[in-house]
C-alpha cells in the first residue's frame, strides 16, 4: 500500500477486526481481560487489523492458523445493503474513520467481488455529491452539513482538493479585477 510513514495507512491497520482463536494459548488471557488465565479455543477477540492479519495468515509451523479473521462490522452485509440502497445517507465516519482504506484491506484478505462493486459505486456516487458541495458555498454548512459530517478521511481529502482548486480559480479572477 502507501508509504511506510503514511499516517492514514497506520490508522487503518490499527482498526479492530473480530478474530476467533482456533487454538488454546496459555497465558494470553489478558487480551480478553482475563489477567492470569489462558486464551481458550474458540473465544472471539477484537484485534487490530495488522495483528489479526499476522496471526491468521503467517506461515506457522502448525498446519492450522492461530486465529480466523471475520470481516469487521463496518463492512458487514447490513452496511453493504444500506449502501446499495442509498450511498448518500450512510454515515461512513461513524462506521470507520478510514472506511475505504479498511474496505480495500479487507478486500485484499477476502475475495469478494460484490463488496468491491458496492464500495466502488458508493465512492463514485458520494464523490459526485462531494464535488457539488465543494462548489456550492452554502452546501457544506446548510442542508449538506449532515452529509459532510459522515465523510471518511479519503472523502474529506477529496472535498478539500475540489474546494481548493475552485477557490484558486476564483482568487485568480478576483486578482484580475484588482490589476
Amino acid at each position: 500500500m502507501g508509504s511506510y510513514y503514511d499516517v492514514d495507512a497506520i490508522l487503518t491497520d490499527a482498526q479492530k477486526v473480530p478474530c476467533t482463536f482456533e487454538l488454546t494459548v496459555p497465558g494470553l488471557g489478558y487480551v480478553e481481560g482475563n489477567m492470569s488465565g489462558d486464551m481458550k479455543q474458540g473465544s472471539k477477540v477484537e484485534l487490530p487489523l495488522w495483528l489479526g492479519e499476522m496471526l491468521a495468515f503467517s506461515q506457522s509451523l502448525n498446519t492450522s492458523s492461530l486465529v480466523t479473521l471475520d470481516p469487521p462490522s463496518a463492512v458487514a452485509p447490513r452496511v453493504l445493503n444500506a449502501l446499495k440502497a442509498d450511498p448518500r445517507t450512510v454515515d461512513l465516519r461513524a462506521l470507520a474513520p478510514h472506511f475505504y482504506n479498511l474496505g480495500a484491506r479487507i478486500l485484499e484478505l477476502f475475495d469478494d467481488d460484490e463488496m468491491m462493486e458496492v464500495l466502488s459505486e458508493t465512492f463514485k456516487a458520494r464523490a459526485a455529491v462531494i464535488a457539488d458541495q465543494a462548489h456550492n458555498p452554502r452546501g457544506a454548512l446548510g442542508e449538506g452539513a449532515d452529509f459532510m459530517r459522515g465523510l471518511d478521511e479519503n472523502e474529506r481529502q477529496l472535498f478539500r482538493a475540489a474546494h481548493d482548486s475552485a477557490k484558486a480559480v476564483r482568487t485568480w479572477m478576483a486578482d484580475l479585477k484588482k490589476q
Binding site: 480495500a104 478486500l107 466502488s120 482548486s165
Partner: peptide, 19 residues
C-alpha cells in the same frame, strides 16, 4: 480546476480495486 478532484476519485477507486 478539475484535475485534483478527478485524479482523487480515480486514486480512490484504484485503491478499492487494488486486489
Amino acid at each position: 480546476e478539475g484535475r485534483t478532484f478527478v485524479t482523487g476519485v480515480i486514486d480512490g477507486l484504484r485503491k478499492i480495486v487494488t486486489s
